[in-house]
């Protein structure tokens, strides 16, 4: 059975990508199971889809714990533990990342020798799930281009022709680029009921209601959630041009992520700024600009 996960963010076409890959297998004669997993459905929040494909009926369900392939649309997710990109990759399985960073560097960084492949998104292409679909199809070596194309057409039925063609172009390019690695992803087995790791079951103790009610006895704990990781573009204040009119940028920032110093100087809290860029759009002297997160250096 093939077990494949696709990781990205809300808005990057992950759900559709999962279905494209599922349909591509299905049209190639495989039994398939595909699904999308989202927590809170939010643009920018981590999301993943998974696809299982086998020669007979599939009885497994839910999260893929032991993937043969993990394909990542948004490379910034790799370093976010809660996104779960690396989950189950310790032993085997291939990691594919849309990234301009060379695969060798990722292999070293993640300690996954020979198990990371990358593809730089073609010029004009955003980080989008379709690229991963083309790549994944080729990496399995069991989906031909006609099935890939048919699957994409099927999943994008109803979309404007230009959108369909664009996606087909991206998928074909990724499919072609990965040709040297065709068949790198191999089917995994189904484990064993002998010598398995037993669950460490525990008897829950009865605890006082103050502890055991879903109540938070503290203020502002949300500050521990680094929503800055959602960001793909970073607003940067040019303090030489900043007028200190904090009541614009700080007031309009939905998240309250622009704090105001005593002298009126606004400061962006990059740990929490989600990158909506309202401040960039509203700054009267145009003192705030947006730069790609990958080019940013943390202060």
């Amino acid at each position: 059975m093939y077990r494949i996960r696709l990781h990205g963010r809300g808005g990057q076409g992950i759900k559709t990508a999962g279905r494209m890959l599922g349909s591509a297998f299905f049209l190639s004669g495989w039994e398939v199971q595909d699904a999308t997993v989202y927590g809170a459905e939010r643009r920018g929040a981590p999301v993943y889809a998974y696809v299982r494909a086998d020669h007979g009926p599939i009885h497994e369900r839910g999260v893929i714990r032991d993937p043969d392939l993990v394909a990542v649309v948004d490379e910034s997710l790799v370093g976010i533990p809660s996104a779960g990109v690396l989950q189950g990759l310790a032993g085997r399985g291939l990691l594919f990342i849309l990234s301009t960073t060379p695969a060798a560097l990722w292999q070293q960084r993640l300690n996954l020798p020979d198990r990371v492949l990358t593809l730089a998104p073609p010029a004009g292409a955003p980080p989008i799930g379709t690229l991963c679909v083309g790549a994944a199809a080729r990496l399995t070596g069991v989906i031909d281009e006609a099935a890939l194309v048919a699957a994409i057409r099927q999943e994008l039925a109803g979309m404007p022709a230009a959108v369909v063609e664009r996606n087909l172009d991206w998928a074909r390019r990724a499919y072609a680029e990965l040709a040297p690695h065709a068949g790198r992803v191999v089917e995994g087995g189904s484990g064993t009921a002998v010598g398995y790791a037993a669950p460490d079951w525990v008897d829950l103790p009865l605890e006082p209601a103050e502890t055991a009610a879903p109540a938070i006895h503290a203020a502002l704990t949300s500050l521990r959630v680094p929503t800055g990781l959602w960001r793909t573009l970073r607003p940067v204040i040019d303090y030489d041009r900043c007028n200190r009119c904090w009541w614009v940028c700080s007031e309009y920032c939905p998240d309250g992520a622009i704090t105001v110093a005593a002298d009126g100087t606004p400061r962006i809290d990059y740990e929490h700024c989600k990158g909506c860029l309202i401040c960039v759009a509203q700054c009267p002297p145009h003192a705030i600009s947006a730069i790609p997160e990958t080019e940013a250096t943390n202060p």
Binding site: A40, T221, L223, T227, S250, G256, E271, L277
Partner: peptide, 22 residues
Amino acid sequence: SQRLLGTGTPLCAGCGGLEALH
């Protein structure tokens, strides 16, 4: 000029409701 509502909520980037709420 002080922001009293905490950051780090899971609402969408650019949420107009959260803007009014803070």
